[in-house]
């Protein structure tokens, strides 16, 4: 059976395909897939899913390898091998709020898609906050008064700017990462090792 690789749909997918092509792989079957969520190439089977689901498919061994954002891994903490960063999908985690925000002395309300990361961040700081879980467009929350601030990923900062928000504090940096199922990496080593080495930035020549 061909190794199964789970890809995060959307923006990360395009960046991965560019990278994959730069390594000399043929990406045509992956770009001409239409709406198919499962595509076979000569070497692999690819499945396309949302980031957190990529982690889940790899954890449960449906996929052997996965390409997923480091932000998703930090948030979902799947039980997988989290091998190495890939040279795309860079972003930062940041606390952002309205420009000129005057903080009250009360307990802050923070809106985020990343409730796990938010909780860990404020716990580390020793500050108690109330966290509100949102699914997207989190920039709305401070503008409309749902929260005092947001915790979200920032790439260029344009979305924040256009919505009148500024970064208060940046605290984590992420990129896309290669993850592997815990037992597949061991028992399918012969099949997986070549592709892992090839996906490694600098061709894996860092050591030895």
């Amino acid at each position: 059976m061909k190794p199964v690789i789970a890809l995060t749909k959307g923006r990360l997918e395009k960046q991965f395909l560019n990278y994959y092509q730069s390594l000399g792989y043929d990406i045509e079957p992956l770009t001409d897939k239409g709406r198919k969520l499962r595509v076979d190439t000569d070497d692999f089977q690819f499945i396309f899913a949302k980031g957190p689901d990529v982690a889940t498919y790899v954890q449960y061994g449906i996929a052997d390898l996965g390409i997923v954002g480091g932000d998703i891994l930090a948030e979902c903490q799947p039980d997988v091998f989290d091998l190495f960063p890939l040279p795309f999908g860079a972003c930062r985690m940041a606390v952002a709020t309205e420009e000129g925000k005057v903080w009250s002395n009360g307990k802050k309300r923070i809106a985020s898609k990343y409730t796990g990361i938010t909780k860990a961040f404020y716990k580390e700081k020793g500050e108690s906050v109330d966290i509100i879980k949102l699914e997207g467009s989190v920039e709305l929350a401070p503008i409309l008064g749902l929260s005092d601030a947001i915790v979200d990923i920032v790439e260029t900062g344009n979305t924040l700017k256009e919505n009148g928000l500024v970064v208060e504090e940046e605290f984590m940096q992420f990129s896309a990462r290669l993850i592997a199922n815990r037992s597949a990496l061991k028992i399918k080593r012969e099949e997986l090792k070549p592709v892992i080495d090839r996906l490694k930035p600098n061709g894996g020549n860092e050591h030895d």
């Binding site: 997988v80 091998f81 989290d82 091998l83 190495f84 960063p85 592997a180 990496l185």
Partner: peptide, 14 residues
């Protein structure tokens, strides 16, 4: 030590 052990457990090279 805990962090390093966890990183080894996850085979997290970076």
């Amino acid at each position: 030590e805990t962090k390093l052990r966890q990183a080894m457990h996850d085979k997290r090279q970076d």
